[in-house]
Amino acid sequence: MLTPEEWTAVVLSLKVAFWATFWSLPFALATAVVLARFDFPGKSLFDGIVYLPLVLPKVVVGYLLLITLGARGYLGQYLAEWFNIRLIFTTAGATVAAAVISFPLTVNAIRLALEAVDRGLETAARTLGASRLDVFLTITLPLMLPGILSGALLSIASALGEFGATITFVSNVEGQTRTIPLAIYSATHMPDGDAMAARLTAVSIVLALGALLLAGVADRQIRTLIGRA
């Protein structure tokens, strides 16, 4: 069905999407909590920076990543020197690009879910003897679960589709950074690449549909679990 080269792209895409979501989710949750529940000077600016990757051209985001995290970037040179971490041309770099691009979507989904949690329930829990942290862990977080799930799925979907920032930041290296979109892009530049592009497009559609169906099932399960059916 798929050639080894195509399989490599599919597996790589899934790996990048999974790890990008895995690593960005805790930060997205923390950011959503800060944005939804705290007030501090400079909040509007912070808010703007969080959503910046959503409105900037993806190529610009990729370029910014290149000059900060690249081999000679402001931070990148120290990453290489001190931790021996190299992001250029590597899967780790592709994961970073995908995480940065999907971050605002994830934050937004979680933030909406958090803002929908009835604060009266949190007050009730506190009168019953629960500390703020206790309330967050036992009341707020469980009630936000549908939002966290949809944030994670949005993150995976957007990571699977990431193109501009990835190709600008970590280039198009087979087995390292060539995810499905980059592979399709390459195929369209090959004289006999039409079949490959078509097969990878089909895989993309199957993955997207599968994710949507899975999301629906999981969402229903969680809503039953938390009594919001």
């Binding site: 007050t123 009341i139 009630l143 009594g227």
Partner: peptide, 9 residues
Amino acid sequence: FQDARLFPH
């Protein structure tokens, strides 16, 4: 509370 505020989950 007037509206009970039971934990739905």
